[in-house]
């Protein structure tokens, strides 16, 4: 059965501001899933809290709206319980690198086969405009009226250093390109991080569509994403030169965590019988 983009609509419209980058990401997700022929009933999406987290009301899938910063551990649990599911986790930059920072780096280290899409708008949108872990230095917000005093994280470098085996950057304004990244991320066996530049038309007047269109360029086949150090250098290119590459920065083949578990070699945990274990066997060592 082929899925189409319309199969993923619930009929409700998202509550994002007109022009929000989230619309582009939503479109790319629907495109990617239908091109992969994944049906709504088989696509598991775990969200954090933020504007990104309002997607499920409009998006037909197996949705789990979790807590701020916590979609990754929930996704970890889902994947281990049923590794045959296609599991996506979705966060904003605050969700991923603020509240959920520890889970971000540990899931990368663990390398479970989960595709992580980060809506990176460099601000806390849903709570009406506070500084985020990726806000540029000097960025003025409700929590830094005089301008942020800290340097932002580099999400790509963070992901690469933490051990993610697929690290990419997309742009909400280039849906076709992002669609392809999502497909590649899903196909990749391991933890795939797609950091998406997402203009926030209401609270971020620095990183606008215009700004991105002027500075973003697509990586092509002259860039080979298989060396970690080159990938890190590429990740820092924006800070160094002002040019913003988008595309696949790094990919490595490393066995996903769940494939090393002998308990689920033959069947998913959810497929295994729960019948009462042989008590005699269990208590033998206590005699």
């Amino acid at each position: 059965m082929t899925t189409t983009v319309n199969d993923f609509s619930t009929g409700r419209l998202p509550t994002w501001c007109p022009g929000c980058g989230d619309f582009g990401i939503w479109a790319a997700l629907k495109n990617a899933l239908s091109e992969l022929n994944i049906e709504p009933k088989d696509a598991v999406f775990v969200y954090g809290i933020g504007c990104h987290g309002n997607m499920y009301n409009a998006f037909k899938a197996v949705n789990f709206e979790s807590l701020h910063g916590r979609p990754l551990p929930v996704a970890n649990g889902i994947k281990m319980a049923n590794h045959k599911l296609s599991v996506f986790a979705v966060s904003g930059d605050g969700d991923a690198m603020g509240e959920g920072g520890n889970h971000f780096i540990h899931t990368a280290k663990r390398n479970l086969d989960i595709t992580y899409i980060i809506h990176d708008n460099q601000v806390y949108g849903l709570t009406t405009g506070q500084t985020s872990p990726t806000s540029p230095k000097g960025f003025k917000s409700k929590t830094n009226p005089e301008g942020s005093m800290e340097n932002p994280f580099n999400p790509l470098a963070l992901a690469i250093a933490a051990g993610a085996t697929f690290v990419a950057r997309g742009f909400a304004g280039d849906i076709a390109h992002l669609t392809n990244l999502i497909k590649l991320g899903h196909k990749h066996k391991g933890f795939s991080v797609i950091n998406v530049l997402q203009p926030c038309v209401t609270f971020n007047h620095q990183n606008t569509y215009q700004f991105y269109r002027q500075n973003v360029y697509k990586l092509d086949e002259t860039y080979q994403p298989f060396d970690k150090i080159s990938a890190l250098e590429k990740a820092y290119e924006w800070e160094k030169t002002g040019k913003i590459p988008i595309g696949l920065f790094y990919e490595e083949q490393r066995m996903p965590y769940e494939e090393e578990l002998s308990q689920i070699k033959e069947s998913a945990l959810t497929e295994q019988s729960l019948s009462n274990m042989d008590l005699d066997n269990i208590i033998k060592e206590f005699t």
Binding site: F64, R70, V74, A75, N76, I78, N102, Q263, I264, L269
Partner: peptide, 29 residues
Amino acid sequence: DQIHKYIYKQPEDEIAAINMAIGASYAGV
């Protein structure tokens, strides 16, 4: 865990512990 075929996972912190357990329960175990 291997004899009795369940998964024990050491998490990065207690917040991950409970959220992982909830994820697994939600998924059906």
